[in-house]
């Protein structure tokens, strides 16, 4: 076991996979000599050489498009996009190609690649460095969408994502990159995609979240003390998400609050509520409440705290459901 932060867990996971399989390559802007702007790839180029840990020209579409070609022809590319707000230049490549190669070639070609990118706000970063686009990517069939919330899951999910036969978007919670330290195994282990984690069991209410908001939810639950017995579900994979765990939890508790950092309209919370309505409506004691950002673009640093869900907003949501 070794103590690691999320960003160190990413680094360990990448090192492990680069060492295991010579077809794994890491590519992106500043990932080589500089070790990534968050140091997620620190030391990797030195260890594995510039042909496997590759500084690319500044072109997100190029990075993703070339990764697709690499994946089709036998490599296992792990593309880094420096901030999630810059993935959009490559959206066409993801939507029109990465997601469809298996289908369009009737299984002859596949696109086993991973796109890693730090996402989310809360660190007073510049414009477009704080986006939470998990719902956008989850709306594309053919892509998988993963968001870890702690160091252990980060390494295990990353290893699993790299073994996936299909393209995976791997969203790293930038805000808590260094905020949580955890003992994690140095050796290989997997956290399977598509499986939620019950971070805390409870009977009164199901609280669902993922990524950096999980910590906010944990803090809220802690603040609640013994007032209610909360079941905290960490979704971990957004698409395909673990519907079974969500539904059985909601059936048990009868009440649900969903917390996400992305804005409300068409956020992933909407999809969860639709599923709950389809499969657990008659178990509900109260309407499901969403605690999300409002429908505005992510504001600049000075006002970001008004935008972001926080402990008080989560508690307010919980009281609303419990007091119904």
């Amino acid at each position: 076991m070794v103590v690691a932060t999320i960003v160190q867990a990413v680094n360990m996971g990448l090192r492990q996979e680069l060492a295991r399989d010579k077809n794994v390559v890491v590519l992106g802007e500043d990932v080589g000599l500089n070790g990534g702007v968050f140091r997620a790839t620190d030391g990797l180029q030195k260890e594995f050489g510039p042909d496997r840990v590759i500084d690319t020209p500044l072109a997100e579409l190029g990075i993703v498009g070339c990764s697709i070609g690499m994946a089709v022809n036998g490599l296992k590319p792990i593309a880094e996009i420096q901030f999630s707000g810059f993935v959009y230049a490559a959206f066409d490549q993801l939507l029109s190609h990465a997601a469809r190669i298996r289908m369009r070639s009737r299984g002859r070609y596949t696109c086993p690649m991973v796109l890693r990118t730090p996402y989310g706000g809360g660190i007073r970063a510049l414009e477009l460095h704080c986006e939470s686009g998990e719902a956008l990517f989850s709306h594309i069939s053919g892509l998988k969408m993963v968001v870890p919330s702690n160091p252990y899951d980060t390494k295990g999910l990353l290893a699993a994502a790299i073994r996936e036969p299909d393209p995976v978007i791997f969203y790293e919670p930038m805000r808590i990159y260094r905020a949580i330290k955890q003992d994690i195994p140095e050796e290989e282990y997997f956290v399977p995609l598509g499986k939620a984690n019950i971070a805390q069991a409870g009977d009164d209410l199901t609280l669902i979240s993922w990524g950096s908001m999980l910590k906010t939810c944990q803090d809220a639950v802690e603040k609640l003390g013994n007032k209610y017995s909360v079941e905290l579900v960490d979704l971990r994979t957004i698409n395909p998400y673990d519907e079974e765990t969500v539904i059985s939890s909601v059936k048990k508790t009868g009440r649900c609050v969903i917390v996400h950092e992305a804005m409300k309209t068409c956020g992933f919370g909407a999809e969860l509520i639709a599923s709950i309505n389809e499969k657990a409506l008659l178990s509900l004691e109260a309407p499901v409440v969403r605690v999300t950002a409002p429908d505005v673009p992510f504001p600049l640093a000075k006002l970001e705290n008004y935008f972001l869900p926080d402990v008080d907003k989560v508690l307010k949501g919980i009281e609303k459901v419990m007091g119904f």
């Binding site: 802007e29 500043d30 080589g32 000599l33 702007v37 500084d55 690319t56 020209p57 500044l58």
Partner: peptide, 11 residues
């Protein structure tokens, strides 16, 4: 430079 990436690597 583009952050750490030298001009030669852009084109």
């Amino acid at each position: 430079f583009a952050i750490s990436v030298p001009r030669k690597r852009q084109t």
